[in-house]
Amino acid sequence: MAGGGATGGSVQTDTYAGARGWLLLPAWVTLGILTLAPLAIMLVYSFLTKEFRGGVIWEFSLDAYDQFFFDRGLFGDAPPQIEWTYIGIFWRSIWQAGLATLLSLLIGFPTAYFIATRPEKQRALWVFLVTIPYWVNLLIRTVSMKFLLRDQGPLNEGLMALGVISEPLTIVNTNLAVQLGLFYSYLPFMVLPIYAAVERYNFALSEAAADLYAPRWTILRRILIPAVKPGILAGCILVFVPSLGSFLAPDLLGGARNFMIGSLIEEQFKGNAGNWPFGAAASMILLTMVLILLIVSARQSQKEAR
């Protein structure tokens, strides 16, 4: 077709069709052995019997899932009741990750919008400013957050020196600290997709709405936000998913009372409480939740695209 010449790149891209097997082989071998196979083996391990000092005995068992969902008393002979401990930890993780996502959205949306409406030459610099901290080691960022927020930390000292508060605020080891930590960990994931969506947004739509007597905030609510919804959805997913399984922020900022999935799983593979099949089962449950979420959101964005 004549149209093919105009777009060039989109039509004829089979230059290396003959070599595609060789080009893909390294990726398939590496990821097949080091990502796919481990996930499959993890699934197998979740159905095995635990060995007491870590590891497994190769005997089929549903104990791990049973332990996760049911309480059969201290000796395992009481009538089964729903075990709320682990479901509770999962629920708290979802809740914490959800609040962290909300916090990221509340701060990330105006930031992304503000950046996207800067003159074109300044935008890259603003995006860069927002993303730099992401490239700093996550552990160091979390430790820094803890250092800043702790009871005798600079934040409390500063606020007391200014006379805003008389007693230090307890922030570390609270839910808020975890949410702040998660927000800090994944904020760029919220800002970047929203930024990209707003940048593509056609502001003539806002002008048309204003022309039809819509005030500023109505335009935001009725025109702009629906138009950039795919970006917002992507941002929420990108923050929520890693928050759900995060380990560092709850471990360092949350303390023992704010246990999340990540810590629960980690504990199964460290020290003496180790229960590998249980850890594998908890990981499988987490993975299933995340994959369902990703599939649903992909369906959703596909529907929106139509």
Binding site: T35, L36, L39, M42, G245, F269, S283
Partner: peptide, 22 residues
């Protein structure tokens, strides 16, 4: 397959890799 490590929570990848080597 290439984007799989991005979709799987890091802690799950960690557990799976440990179990695999074991």
């Amino acid at each position: 397959l290439i984007s799989l490590p991005l979709m799987v929570p890091e802690i799950v990848t960690a557990v799976a890799t440990l179990i695999f080597f074991n």
